Simulated assay, not measured.
Amino acid sequence: MKIQKEIIDFEEGKSFKLFSPSLKNCFYWHYHPETELVYVEASNGIRHVGKDISKFTDHDLLLIGSNVPHLNFDYGIQTECRQLVLQMQEEFTQNLTAMAEFSAVKELLDRSCLGLSFFGATKETVVQKLRIMESQNPFEAVMSLIEILQILAHSEEVKVLNQEDTRVQWFMNDKIRMGTIYHYIDEHYDKKPDVNEIARIIGLSTPAFCRYFKKQTDMTFTGFVNNYRINQAKISLLKGNSVTEACFQAGFESLSYFNKLFKQHMEQTPSEFRKEHMRR
């Protein structure tokens, strides 16, 4: 369940890569600095981008920003599935958005840290262009990519998956302290994270730590830990574990409290969530 940093290799002289990976039997929860456009050709499946876990039907087209954690979209799909993935180098997107003519594209890429799912005519048009790109020469393909980004930038056929920035760096606004805090929570969420202990580790009094943490995350330490546990429980349920297993693996000591908190976060019980996402 640990987030893995994916290292992406590009061909020499290429600013992006377009390929069709297949990781059906692999649970790959990862992130990378490159911006990614993904088309998942499947009758149904699950998208997990940042904190959002939701289902899709009749294929999906997603734009995922730099360093946003996400699960491979073909995970667990038992029916026929094909992915078409386009990954853009950081330097390419930075150079593109530095030009005034691409202000709309810059805004699109800035919003992509939330995870964007496109539908309707936008999806159909972009998928058609992606398929054409597979057989184009490098210059033609770059022109097609710029055109695709322009189409997405001006489209209103889009669903925003997260309401807040979920990039990995979000946890490290203060690189030393927040990095230490996040590491502590990641190591102790299934045990008993102690606000007094982490305050001591980073050299603050407990009241000062609580003020600092609330300012950085807009959440209390307990609220953040519970949110983290719920996300871990969702991942556990997606992997086929029972509600009881997911509850205790995530560090909750009471099944009734877990069910109550899960419903507050997800507006459905863990059993309903599991049943919905395992029905494939």
Rank of each mutant, 00 (worst) to 15 (best):
K129Y: 00
K175Q: 11
V127G: 03
Y184T: 02
N95M: 12
V168E: 08
E157D: 12
K159C: 04
H154A: 14
L62G: 04
G115P: 05
R200C: 12
V158S: 05
L109E: 08
A141N: 04
M133P: 05
A104I: 06
L114R: 06
E187L: 15
K129A: 08
L161K: 06
V160H: 12
V85C: 04
K123D: 08
R200W: 01
F171Y: 15
I148E: 04
R177K: 15
N95Q: 13
D174G: 10
G120M: 05
M133S: 01
V85T: 04
K175R: 12
D110Y: 11
N67V: 08
L116T: 00
E164V: 15
D58R: 07
Q87V: 05
H188D: 09
E164I: 15
E140L: 09
T97K: 09
A153W: 03
N95P: 12
I64V: 15
V142C: 10
S112C: 06
L114V: 07
N95W: 00
T93M: 11
R131M: 11
L108P: 05
D174M: 08
I132K: 07
I151N: 05
Q163S: 15
G65A: 02
D60I: 11
E90K: 06
G120F: 01
R111L: 11
K192Q: 15
S103H: 04
I176M: 12
Q83C: 06
C113Q: 12
G65K: 01
L86Y: 00
S155F: 06
L130D: 00
N67R: 12
H183K: 12
K123L: 15
R111A: 14
K191R: 09
R131E: 13
P138N: 05
I132E: 10
D74S: 00
P69M: 04
I198H: 08
E156H: 11
I132T: 07
M133E: 05
E101W: 02
H59V: 01
N162C: 03
E164M: 14
E156V: 08
Q128T: 15
